[in-house]
Design a protein around this nucleic acid. Structure first.
Length: 877
RNA sequence: GGGAGCAUAGCUCAGUUGGGAGAGCAUCCGCCUUACAAGCGGGAGGUCACUGGUUCAAGUCCAGUUGUUCCCACCA
């Protein structure tokens, strides 16, 4: 706890774990169903159980936690649902690697043995990331932690599969799918990444049967020639019309393949002739269907050539490629090789080139599911922040293809389809049927499991108990906002939307808040291969969780990438330390006596900061509602540091140091009050420090459950703020003068404020003590005329006043001339700008009246100041 | 091929509905002023990528150009 003799540096290590344990102990993060309160719900994007916390997680959880804490303080029943994802492929790969260390393989262990091992992995690593999320201060309801392969969530998966199947929205079919020869599983379109690669473009020719002519074509994948079953040309291509219907001869096997006409072929591209391999190319597959071409699959699951490849059988696809080129070269059928930049599909997990293979797989039919999801956005029910991602969302849905959901993996939800060995009937059911329709009991379950996103698509309602009709589901669904990285828009957001619509009849969330990627200090993506990753735990160890969080929340705008560098965290740490010290200062000046202070006891300075804090509360609230976390955090920082610490605390010192000052209690009250407001506004961003201070002051049991500051009209003194601003301006001008004259603050000087305005004199009468304390005045005399001012003094001009300080014995008149000339130039610039505006008839006619008035007032002010400074310059001359 | 983002001080970035260009870091000068040197005070530094348009008024809105990053896409 903070004490009066406490260190001048805030030490997060003394605080964070203790407070987090306390919060957990008190159950502040646990949200119970309570009809008297409005729920506010966010589902965590469940991290993979293979993951260590990385800086991207820290960023995401900072954003979410800020929203959660803000809403909790506003009085909502705030639920942040936490959990983890089984991450099918990613985890299975890790487990297989781990098994290999013990000399074990999947085949050796068998399915059951493997699953046992996988669950051991989960037990061992599944909770690591959770404890890391806690280190960040995340206010998740840990009593509700879920895992995508929990019993309940698995039931949801089965339920969804069965229902979609019944509706005909899940079907099994032989299709060309993206096949990863490394992971030996099919993957969805969304998991294919396109990489531009420099590669060969080989030109070949096949002889034409009963002719001296040849067909010539080019390919980037010569090995697929083994599966060629046609040559295609454009039907309108005059060059080749005579060939349509004839046969070419694929020389390796002397296979006769037809020359067909199809619009797919562009006459003006390449030779205008295309080799057709239905088994290994998506376009060729479609073309093949149109022309009833045979499908000859020449590749094994591991990317080697199969028995259909003749003498190439057993060779890796790339070795076969080389050998085929060699063979064609020898036969004189190879024409040339070009180098081209080609876009190739790779598996996003392992980056190995994906092969289209013809496979029996399960698919979700997207037609019918996509439309409502699209409509939700176009009708405005789904709000995407920032809006530009709405275009990405609609474009994806408008061009969506069926979703391949079966994976040749064991770690995941096994497909609930049962095959009859007798009649071949497929039964889809939540649990194994006792018998097939045909009466036999010889059933086997599908060997495949589901895409990991199939289960995470259900996350917003499966975590709340669906398909059971729980009170949690009723109360917390739909959630309020989904906050995740834009890179999983297709994988996750879209699929949650249509799943929620289909099974809950309601969108899973109203708002989607996308964030960007955290990059390194040079703007590069963080990656293992570059070794430029940042471990948030190391940063926390060095600077504290609050500093990390604050630095991630500031200087960023929704959806934009964020650059991470130590100096920024350091700056945040420094700011938080500033708050710590300001609190220490206030604490030091407090004593046991209760502060019996009313608004009527406040001085102009008190009202000024109180009013500023009041406005700030409103601004920060509005910004957080708009998900403008960066600006909100910045406003809090500017207020706490620049206004509260640098000005108000300094204003308060003369009053605090004078025990007899009747306004001393008012200053103390204001300090405490404004600190309490500032702390609460800062709390969502930096929970630990704010809680530590809050409790030390005895502001309440915990800041976590304190009330969010609200705008209070009785604290609105914006009309009077100008008085203090005038004092500030005078102080700044005098400090500037001293600096230029090289007069140290320790050298006090009698100061004269001259103003013809009674109002202004009143302001300065009230601000005497501040000018003495902050601008090195030994005494401040306010008068209507210059009469009392000493002869040899220099002066600064502020609006409606001239301030004299006798520093002349040190003043170099030449330098003074330069200073005044510079000042005149500056003021003249202002006057010119305003004059130009006011001479513009269009401006006078069309600008709002208030704007014109404002400009007139400014013009008069600057004109007056300009004249005074000009007079000063003349006197020197 | 289609779409999007970005381009503002030396660096990293803000700039909310159009109305006198901001912050942090770095830099220069002066301060250990009893909350804080992780600090205080004072400076310097910008044709807001370019061109045109709308407007009384453009960093902000519109069109185009250049550079750059990313996403999507079946060009053999």
């Amino acid at each position: 706890m903070m004490k009066k003799d406490m260190e001048t540096k805030y030490n997060p290590k003394d605080v964070e774990d203790r407070l987090y344990a306390q919060w957990m102990d008190k159950g502040y993060f646990h949200a119970k169903v309570d009809e008297s309160k409005t729920p506010y719900t966010i589902m965590i994007p469940p991290p993979n159980i293979t993951s260590q916390l990385h800086i991207g997680h820290a960023f995401e959880y900072t954003l979410i936690d800020t929203l959660m804490r803000f809403k909790r303080m506003q009085g909502y029943n705030a639920l942040w649902m936490p959990g983890t994802d089984h991450a099918a492929i990613a985890t299975e790969v890790k487990i297989v690697e781990d098994m290999a260390k013990d000399g074990l393989t999947k085949a050796g262990l068998g399915r059951e043995g493997f699953m046992k091992r996988a669950w051991e992995w989960y037990d061992k690593y599944g909770n690591i990331i959770i404890s890391q999320i806690q280190k960040l201060g995340s206010s998740c309801d840990w009593e509700r932690t879920r895992f995508t392969m929990d019993e309940g969530l698995s039931e949801a998966v089965l339920e969804v599969f069965v229902r979609l199947h019944e509706k005909g929205l899940i079907y099994r079919g032989e299709r060309l799918v993206n096949w990863c020869t490394n992971c030996k599983t099919s993957i969805s379109d969304a998991e294919v990444e396109h990489e531009d690669k420099q590669g060969g473009f080989w030109h070949f020719k096949y002889p034409i049967k009963d002719s001296d002519e040849f067909v010539t074509f080019a390919t980037t994948r010569p090995e697929t020639m083994l599966g060629d079953t046609a040559i295609a040309v454009n039907p309108d291509d005059e060059r080749y019309k005579h060939l349509i219907g004839k046969f070419a001869i694929m020389p390796i096997f002397d296979r006769e393949i037809p020359i067909v006409a199809d619009d797919y072929v562009k006459a003006d591209f390449g030779t205008g002739m295309v080799k057709i391999t239905p088994a290994h190319d998506f376009n060729d597959f479609e073309l093949g269907k149109r022309h009833n071409l045979p499908i000859i699959n020449v590749m094994n699951d591991d990317g080697t050539i199969n028995e259909n490849g003749g003498c190439y059988e057993g060779m890796d696809r790339y070795d076969a490629r080389k050998r085929i080129i060699k063979e064609f070269t020898e036969n004189g059928l190879f024409i040339k090789k070009e180098e081209i930049n080609n876009s190739v599909g790779v598996h996003d997990r392992c980056k190995v080139v994906v092969e289209p293979l013809n496979k029996m797989q399960w698919f979700v039919k997207m037609e019918g599911l996509a439309e409502p999801a699209l409509e939700a956005y176009t009708k405005g029910d789904l709000n995407i922040v920032p809006p530009r991602f709405g275009k990405v969302y609609t474009h994806w849905l408008e061009n969506i293809k069926d979703w391949c959901i079966s994976r040749q993996l064991w770690w995941g939800h096994r497909i609930p389809a049962y095959y009859c060995r007798d009649c071949g009937e497929i039964t889809v059911a939540k649990s194994a049927p006792s018998a097939c329709k045909c009466g036999c009991k010889n059933l086997t379950q599908d060997q495949d499991s589901l895409d990991t996103w199939f289960s995470s698509a259900l996350w917003p309602f499966s975590t709340l108990g669906w398909p059971n009709d729980t009170k949690e589901l009723k109360y917390f669904y739909p959630t309020n906002v989904l906050c995740c990285g834009y890179e999983i828009l297709f994988f996750w957001v879209v699929r949650m939307v249509f799943s929620g619509q289909e099974f809950m009849g309601e969108l899973p969330f109203k708002d989607v808040l996308f964030h960007g990627i955290v990059r390194d200090d040079q703007g590069r993506k963080m990656s293992k291969s570059l070794g430029n990753g940042i471990d948030p735990l190391v940063v926390i160890d060095q600077y504290g969780a609050d500093a990390l969080r604050f630095s991630l929340a500031t200087g960023n705008t929704p959806g934009n990438d964020l650059r991470f560098y130590d100096e920024k965290v350091e700056q945040s740490r420094n700011f938080l330390n500033k708050v710590w010290n300001a609190s220490r200062f206030i604490m030091m000046n407090l004593d046991e006596t209760p502060l019996n202070v009313g608004l009527e006891d406040l001085t102009p300075a008190d009202k000024w900061i109180l009013s500023k804090a009041n406005t700030l509360a409103q601004e920060v609230t509005e910004l957080l509602e708009k998900y403008e976390l960066g600006i909100a955090a910045d406003k809090v920082q500017t207020f706490m540091w620049d206004e509260f610490c640098d000005w108000y605390i300094e204003f308060s010192k003369p009053r605090l140091y004078n025990e007899g000052d009747p306004t001393r209690p008012a200053a103390l009250w204001t300090l405490k009050h404004v600190l309490a407001v500032g702390l609460r506004l800062l709390h969502p961003f930096s929970p630990f420090l704010t809680e530590e201070i809050y409790q030390s002051f005895g502001f309440g049991e915990s800041i976590v459950i304190s009330q969010w500051p609200k705008y209070d009209e009785t604290h609105n003194f914006t009309a009077d703020e100008g008085d203090i601003e005038q004092i500030k301006e005078a102080v700044r001008a005098l400090r500037n003068l001293r600096q230029q004259k090289d007069v140290p603050p320790s050298r006090k000087a009698k100061t004269f404020v001259v103003s013809a305005s009674e109002d202004v004199r009143r302001i300065f009468e009230g601000g005497k003590a501040y000018i003495m304390a902050l601008a090195g005045a030994s005494e401040v005399i306010v008068s209507a005329t210059k009469d009392g001012a000493p002869e040899n003094s220099v002066s600064v001009v502020v609006p409606s006043a001239e301030i004299f300080m006798p520093l002349t014995d040190l003043v170099d008149m030449e330098k003074e001339k330069v200073r005044l000339e510079k000042e005149i130039k500056k003021l003249q610039g202002e006057v010119d700008r305003v004059t130009a505006k006011l001479n513009n008839q269009g401006f006078l006619a069309k600008a709002p009246e208030a704007m014109v008035e404002e400009e007139r007032a400014k013009g008069a002010k600057y004109q007056e100041m300009l004249e005074v400074v000009q007079k000063q310059l003349e006197q020197i001359k």
